[in-house]
Design a protein around this nucleic acid. Sequence first.
DNA 1: TTGACATATGTCGCTGAACAAGGTATAGTA
DNA 2: TACTATACCTTGTTCAGCGACATATGTCAA
Lengths: 115, 115
Amino acid sequence: MSEDRDLLRGNIPTLILSVVSEAPSHGFAIAREINQRSDNLLQLKQGTLYPALHALERDGWITGAWEIPDAERPRKVYTLTEAGKTELERRTQAWGKFASAMESVMGGKRREQPI
Amino acid sequence: MSEDRDLLRGNIPTLILSVVSEAPSHGFAIAREINQRSDNLLQLKQGTLYPALHALERDGWITGAWEIPDAERPRKVYTLTEAGKTELERRTQAWGKFASAMESVMGGKRREQPI
DNA sequence: TTGACATATGTCGCTGAACAAGGTATAGTA
DNA sequence: TACTATACCTTGTTCAGCGACATATGTCAA
């Protein structure tokens, strides 16, 4: 599984934006969600999660707000910004193109020629 | 396009093994092939290509042999080994699982539950 | 009440893949 | 003569992800 580290490269921000785009959420819950949805294949570590969230906030794709529920630990809840929505769309498309390019090479297909 | 650098991470050896598995080929041609099949989306740079080939040879997945055609530059032609064939299968499966996990997270799907 | 565990946030230093930029050399072409 | 494409290679840099650690609270069992 250690190989998935490299496969993950560059995709973690996309995954985080995806999850946050559905509903505002805090870091720990986002990681748990990614973990569960991928059936534990994609494991977001803490040393990756928090710096990634900070970078996304710095770039303006998400905004964080502290929430202090009664009788619970403080959480920083992140919400997707408008710019973040656009960024997610861009990244989703980039992923699609990339995955399709991978299949093209692995499947031995030649690029499509216009008629 | 600069973002595809990160997406490529960890997939380059798989792409190289894929191309070589179809027919023995030399470095420069392998890169050209990947480039063309992906419609120039996946660009294998020389600073990536040659070290990657050396690593694959070191690990025993491919073997290189110098070929000196008449009136042409010498080339190092790489062939997939038996172990390399297994490795390629393993990597192809890993890619499939990873891509499907990505889709699961991005699509908001929950992991399938047994009945 | 003591310990273990899950939750929840964060930082710091390391590693290693991919890249940029450089090198060598030959064949063909303008 | 200069340029381009082919064909091989190395060195130093960069930075995403990770391991390991620190901190703190709520819950639950021994």
